[in-house]
């Protein structure tokens, strides 16, 4: 069964369309291969149908120091099934024609380094990714590597934390392409009840430095959070809350999980 592929949109096209219509981007995060690759492949078109604007796909890692228990556990489960990088690339390549929205890979530099930087860039590009987030690769280590990633045709999304100094912010903004990932809190991934009170001011200060889109992640899980950030941030990244929806339906099969994840995505956009 070969369907005609959905036309692809770039990250730049996605954000300029959203800005034109005054909308905030919703970027769900999935752990590749959790609970299995067939489910991940089924979720991608379900999320697009539910209105997601970009999708972030996490490469499971044995030692994810920036992740809280929900994502950590999903990685442990995926790896316990002997998931290999080659399997992830194959799954994305096969699923790519079913979605038009941009795909952003989130991957530890431990994986990239061992696999080989050039080889990793080539394989992610070929599989159909649009950008890479390498959360444990801050400047100055990031400088030379970001250039290589961009030369390979992928955007490089770097992170800004609440603790990042003004000098570093300018440097990170300059190295980023596609969008900038702003961490709402100092800490690890995971759902939080309330957004930090200084988030709006921090975002406004960051946006003064750049015209590049700024997306907010860590701790975002509710419709109110998304609404609160509309008009302030260009996008929100929701991770642990999506992974939790998957966990609740483990064993129900790809179709049921894809529907549950799609329903949650719609709920966030109401």
């Amino acid at each position: 069964m070969i369907e005609s592929s959905v036309p692809r949109r770039t990250i730049a096209q996605t954000f300029s369309a959203l800005r034109a219509s005054g909308q905030i981007a919703l970027m769900p995060f999935l752990s590749a291969g959790y609970p299995d690759l067939a489910t991940t492949a089924a979720i991608l078109p379900a999320l697009e149908a539910a209105g997601a604007h970009l999708i972030e796909i996490g490469f499971p890692f044995s030692d994810p120091i920036a992740d809280g228990p929900t994502i950590q556990e999903s990685y442990t489960v995926a790896l316990s099934h002997k998931l290999k990088l080659a399997d992830i690339f194959k799954m994305v390549a096969v699923a790519r024609p079913t979605v038009g929205l941009p795909l952003v890979g989130m991957v530890s530099f431990s994986i990239v380094y061992r696999y080989g930087l050039e080889r990793f860039i080539a394989d992610t590009k070929t599989a159909g990714f649009d950008a890479l987030i390498v959360p444990d690769l801050p400047p100055p280590e990031a400088e030379a590597i970001c250039g290589k990633i961009r030369a390979g045709g992928l955007d490089t999304v770097l992170l800004v934390a609440p603790t990042t100094t003004p000098e570093r912010r300018a440097e990170i903004v300059a190295l980023s392409s596609g969008f900038i990932y702003y961490l709402s809190v100092s800490g690890i991934t995971g759902e939080r009840d309330q957004l930090p009170t200084d988030l709006t001011a921090n975002l406004q200060a960051l946006k003064k430095l750049t015209d590049k889109p700024v997306c907010v992640g860590f701790g975002i899980s509710k419709r109110e959070h998304v609404r609160q950030l509309s008009g302030i941030a260009d996008g929100v990244i929701v991770g642990s809350a999506f992974v939790k929806r998957i966990t609740q339906h483990v064993g129900d099969g790809p179709a049921v999980i894809a529907k549950a994840v799609g329903d949650y995505c719609r709920e966030l956009l109401l």
Partner: peptide
Amino acid sequence: AAGHFGAYGGVFVPETLVTA
């Protein structure tokens, strides 16, 4: 100054920790 012992060392951590 950046913590390199020849090719090794460096700082490969999430941005949250860099300032500290």
